[in-house]
Nucleic acid binder design. Structure first.
Length: 273
DNA sequence: GCGACAG
DNA sequence: ATCTTGTCGC
């Protein structure tokens, strides 16, 4: 049943989506609202969450949505929720939330109902926050809909509002020396939209951190740093690992290849079709 | 027609 | 996002 997600929505729908983003953006809070966020050691912070979706190969509509909660500062997984979902909306840059966020909200809701004491105090989201075409990326969207503090963490620079992954940008990246080094991502209007962060000493590619909801960029970057064992923040990394594992266990190999098939799997063919 | 394009 | 194993380097 490899259904495809819908094709590109008509302009009419995109207008509705833009209006929705604008309305929800009015509810966005870009300040630290929690005491632990301003504490030098994040005292009072005990649970950090991460969300992610992994896809079934060759099927842009089937995915596993996962929400994990880790203890802080140990960063050990204390809660996991993986569920297969059928996506409706296609992927479009600038509208990622309309594709993924409903399933993430569902996961948060399940957690609130079943184990309210495990609800995370902050959520790391795979994607951007205010570093976005209209200042309202998936991390903001999830943050406002759940009213949880959220941090946007992207692996690639979203080239928006004058930001370009050009030679100068690459040079700034090259200059990031030690783990924790950063440089600001300044939009056309002079606003700091996010921060490029060298999150691991052996990583040449930075992380692009931006405010999701109920946290300042400064706190977001500092917390991201303290949650990175490897390149990506441990909550997001665990959500990623566990969602793909779930797919492997579920649909990975319904029929394991026979040893015979295995031997000839990559045999070079002279004629094809 | 050409470039851009988080996940 | 996914296609993909081993391999070079600290």
């Amino acid at each position: 049943m490899a259904r495809e997600a819908a094709e590109k929505p008509p302009e009419e729908i995109l207008s509705l989506w833009k209006r929705e983003q604008a309305q929800l953006k009015a509810l966005l809070v870009e300040q630290d609202t929690e005491a632990w966020q301003r504490d030098p050691a994040f005292s009072g912070l005990q649970r950090v969450g991460g969300v992610d979706l992994s896809f079934v190969k060759g099927d842009s509509a089937s995915a596993c949505a996962s929400l994990v909660v880790l203890s802080y500062p140990e960063l050990e997984v204390v809660y996991e929720d993986c569920s297969m979902v059928n996506l409706t909306a296609p992927y479009m840059s600038g509208f990622l939330a309309f594709r993924e966020v409903p399933f993430l909200v569902d996961a948060v809701q399940r957690l609130r109902e079943k184990e309210p004491h495990m609800v995370p105090q902050v959520l790391f989201v795979d994607g951007n926050g205010v570093l976005h075409h209209r200042g309202f990326g998936v991390a903001c969207h999830l943050g406002v809909l759940t009213d949880l503090p959220c941090i946007g963490v992207a692996k690639k620079l979203l080239q928006v509002d004058g930001l370009e992954n050009n030679a100068q940008h690459k040079e700034k990246i090259r200059l990031l020396q030690a783990e924790g080094d950063t440089f600001p991502l300044i939009g056309g209007s002079g606003t700091v939209l996010g921060m490029a962060l060298k999150s691991h000493s052996h990583s040449s590619k930075p992380l692009y951190v931006s405010v999701g909801h109920r946290i300042t960029l400064e706190s977001a970057v500092r917390l991201t740093r303290s949650c990175c064992r490897f390149r990506s923040p441990e909550p997001v990394r665990q959500a990623d690992i566990r969602s793909r594992d779930y797919i492997r266990r579920t649909l990975g190999s319904p029929r394991p290849p026979t040893p015979e098939q295995e031997r000839f799997r990559n045999y070079p063919l002279t004629f094809c079709c």
